[in-house]
Amino acid sequence: MSTILTISNLTKKYGYLTAVNNLSFTIEKGNVYGILGPNGSGKSTTLGITLNVVNKTSGNFQWFNGDLSTHEALKKVGAIIERPNFYPYMSAYKNLKLVCKIKDIAEEKIDEKLELVGLIERKHSKFKTFSLGMKQRLAIASALLNDPEILILDEPTNGLDPQGIHQIRSLIKEIANKGTTILLASHLLDEVEKVCTHVVVLRKGEKLYEGPVDQMITSNGFFELKAENTDALINFLNTNPNIKDVKVNGDLITAFLDQPMLSSTLNKLCFDNGINLSHLVLRKESLEEQFLQLTDQLS
């Protein structure tokens, strides 16, 4: 597999604030990556640095094994950051024509890409007459003009209405299915969960996790338990080596597992210790709970 982007020890400081702190990760061809993190975690800054619009403080990044200058490499990349930026007084078609000139490519793909994002009927309308959803779709068309090696999207559904969000997401999936490598920055978990295969989790500019989405859920899940004799249950759980943590919320007791365990095994153990369970559910954390756990760990 060939590497598209390598980031090593990247740091960006704005005065006292460290927006990105010693960040390293790699993007391989063919995967759909998500950069996940709360607002202000350094997602856009990281992308901005690799896209030549923000200056790094230290560290390095390298496109396509480093044999191209950044701006030459960017001609093979399609990217949109935050809001779609186009010349408001120019039509959709002319804006894309300008992008073709900048990327030094032929103009024949303009219609094809406008068709893909469903803007072909509006191709001669001025950009300023577009709704936000249409602007965002035009931005995606523009990023796809050169059939890029990688498509970078920064919060593509931010500020859109549900219908717009749906359109953009199905568009992203469609593009991903064609085999285009995608890097999607978002603070929305279900967005990342639905589209991405790999994820990099950031918090305050630091990397918390990097790897496949399904392996991000590393825990063995937890039991939700209820019993007549709550105190005895808590005592029992605290002495069991397979349980790493116990939380009590009213009469509902949550026991986090250190090792995999079947609910029937626990049930039997409890029964053998004279505890009758009235409620027993084995659950896995949702990505959202995982994410909150990850991002809360260090705070």
Binding site: N52, V53, S69, H71, K75, A79, N85, F86, I102, K103
Partner: peptide, 17 residues
């Protein structure tokens, strides 16, 4: 003001260009 300078750079125009 249109932030198109940002998009131009992202699209692969160098600052020198």
């Amino acid at each position: 003001s249109n932030k198109t300078i940002k998009q131009n750079l992202i699209d692969g125009l160098s600052k020198k260009e």
